[in-house]
Each structure stands twice: as structure tokens, then as C-alpha cells.
Amino acid sequence: MADRPEDEDTNHSNKDEEEEEEENSNYREPIVDGRDIKFETRILNEFLVCSLCMGYIKDAHTIVECLHTFCKSCITKYLRDKTDCPTCEVALGPYPLDKIKFDRQIHNIVCKIFPQFEAEDAEEERKYYSSVGLKTDPPPAPAPAPANNNGKPDANKQPYKKVKKEDKSVFYTDEVGFELNVDEKNTNPELRPLDKPFIRTSAKVTVKHLKKYILNKLHIDLEKAPQVEIRYRGEVLGSEHTLAYIFKSRGTDPSTKNPNFKYSMPS
């Protein structure tokens, strides 16, 4: 006699519980050895796997409206026919490709954990160009060693290399670091301190993105983003202001180590 529907549901539930227990039993705690940490990469799959191709994210690009990240090739191909996020279905307007930006942090994390990806990509690129009859540019030749007093190269000296002087102005760099803290005058119990208040991100990020980031981290409905107020040096910031513009126009407080933004929301 065939199982009744409720029996089938029970069987599926028991099977899922068994799989979850087996997965938990195979979990290994990260091992900390000085400055090195050894861990199973599968614990990061939730954050580093592209939901479109189900592989590790390559050339990470993030949708600025909802902060979901995908491979560049995957999300650009998806947005040829769609105008919403494939994860949360938030609308991206008539020009969805304008709403995706290169995510340097996710890209760097993937490259550090999986350094072989860069070599594999270079090899695939070389094979592709070879298949169509084109040659890739050879790597640049090393600079000659400095000559000694006899006019001959001195193997013991390293070649002189010009280093471009860095501009230390916070608003001219690609990335900026700052803190996001709850305003002392905040009366809304939903807004709590962030677990990690120090943020490092692109200087092109706007105040609107910061509001959504805060709500997303605190698991608050993103529809409340317009109600959030963010202050910098006592001034309420406009939603469209970028971090680069804010630091350039308001400067930084020399008495603090990191620029400090305060957020609040009415009860």
C-alpha cells in the first residue's frame, strides 16, 4: 500500500534531519596557529558561492541596491533579460547594469583563499587566444641590475624601481575606512550597535548604501531605510552624498583615529 502524503512528508523531514546531523558531525573547528588559521572552505560557501552558477565567485560584482554578490559574467548575462536581483527580486530599474559595482573586498578574499583561480584564469585566457590565432603579451622583462664602478652589472644590488608617491588624502583613494556607531540620541530600540563597526569600502559608496547596510546587518526591513538618519561631525547627511564628497567637503576630525558616522531612527 502506498504511503499517505503525511507519511511522505515525515520521511522527507527525517531524511533532511539525518543529512543535517551528518553534516554537523563532519564539521571541524578552525585551527589557529599563530597568525595562520586553517579551516574548511565549505563554511564560507554561504558568502563566497555565486547563486547563479553555484561556483566560487570570480570577478565579484555586487548589486548596490541589496548588496547581493555574483560573478561578473553571471550577473551581466542574467541582467540582459531581467531587471531584478536574482536572489531577493528587488527592482533595479530600466538600466540594471548601472546598479552593479566591482566588489574589491569579496574579490580579494576569494583570491587569498583560492590563489589558484588567478593562474587558472590566465591559462584559460592563453588557451582561448591561442585557439583563435592570437598571441598574448609576454610578461615584462626584469629591469637590468645597476652597474658597479667598472660599468658591469652588479648581481648583488637590486635594480632601482621608481615608486609612485601615494596620495594620502582620504577622499582621493579608492577605498576609505571609518566607523559606524549608534547615535547617543537614538531612541529606537531596533537600532543596535553593529558587531563590527569598522568599515572599509569604496569611496564611491553613498549614504543611501550605508543605511541599507545597517538595516541589513541588524535584520530590519529595508523599506525603513528612508527613516534612518546618518550624521557626520554633527551634520545630517543627504542620501545621495558619496563618502568621497563627504570627506572632501567636511574634512576629518584630527582628534579621532577613524572618521566616525552616527546613525539613528525615530521610534
Rank of each mutant, 00 (worst) to 15 (best):
M1W: 06
D3Y: 12
E8W: 09
D9Q: 11
T10P: 01
N11L: 14
H12V: 10
H12W: 08
H12D: 09
N14C: 06
E17Y: 07
S25D: 13
Y27S: 03
R28F: 10
I31W: 13
I31R: 12
V32N: 01
D36E: 10
F39Q: 09
E40M: 03
I43P: 01
N45F: 11
N45D: 14
N45C: 10
E46A: 10
F47I: 06
V49Q: 10
C50S: 07
Y56K: 02
K58T: 02
K58M: 07
T62A: 12
E65V: 11
C66H: 06
L67N: 03
H68G: 02
H68A: 13
T69Y: 10
S73G: 07
C74F: 07
C74I: 12
C74R: 13
Y78G: 05
K82C: 04
K82V: 03
T83I: 08
P86K: 13
P86Y: 10
C88I: 05
L92T: 00
K101D: 09
K101E: 11
K101R: 10
F102Y: 12
Q105H: 13
H107S: 15
N108D: 13
I109V: 09
P115G: 08
F117C: 01
E118G: 00
A119S: 03
A119L: 06
A119Y: 01
E120P: 00
E120I: 06
E123K: 12
R126C: 04
R126N: 09
K127H: 15
Y128I: 11
Y129P: 01
S130D: 12
G133V: 11
G133H: 15
K135L: 06
P142C: 08
A143V: 03
A145T: 02
A147M: 15
N148Y: 00
N148Q: 04
N149L: 10
P153G: 02
A155V: 05
A155W: 09
N156A: 05
N156P: 01
K157F: 00
K157T: 00
K162G: 02
V163F: 11
K164R: 14
D167V: 08
D167Q: 05
D167K: 03
D167E: 05
S169P: 02
E175C: 06
E175N: 12
G177F: 14
L180S: 00
D183M: 07
D183C: 09
T187H: 14
E190I: 01
R192H: 08
F198P: 01
A203K: 06
K204P: 02
V205A: 11
T206D: 07
K208A: 14
L210T: 03
I214L: 14
I214Q: 05
K217C: 09
L218W: 07
D221A: 14
D221F: 15
K224Q: 10
Q227D: 12
Q227W: 05
Y232W: 09
R233N: 04
E235W: 02
E235Q: 06
V236W: 02
L237E: 01
G238P: 01
S239L: 00
H241P: 00
T242K: 05
A244C: 03
S249G: 01
D253I: 08
T256Y: 08
N260W: 06
F261K: 00
Y263L: 07
M265G: 04
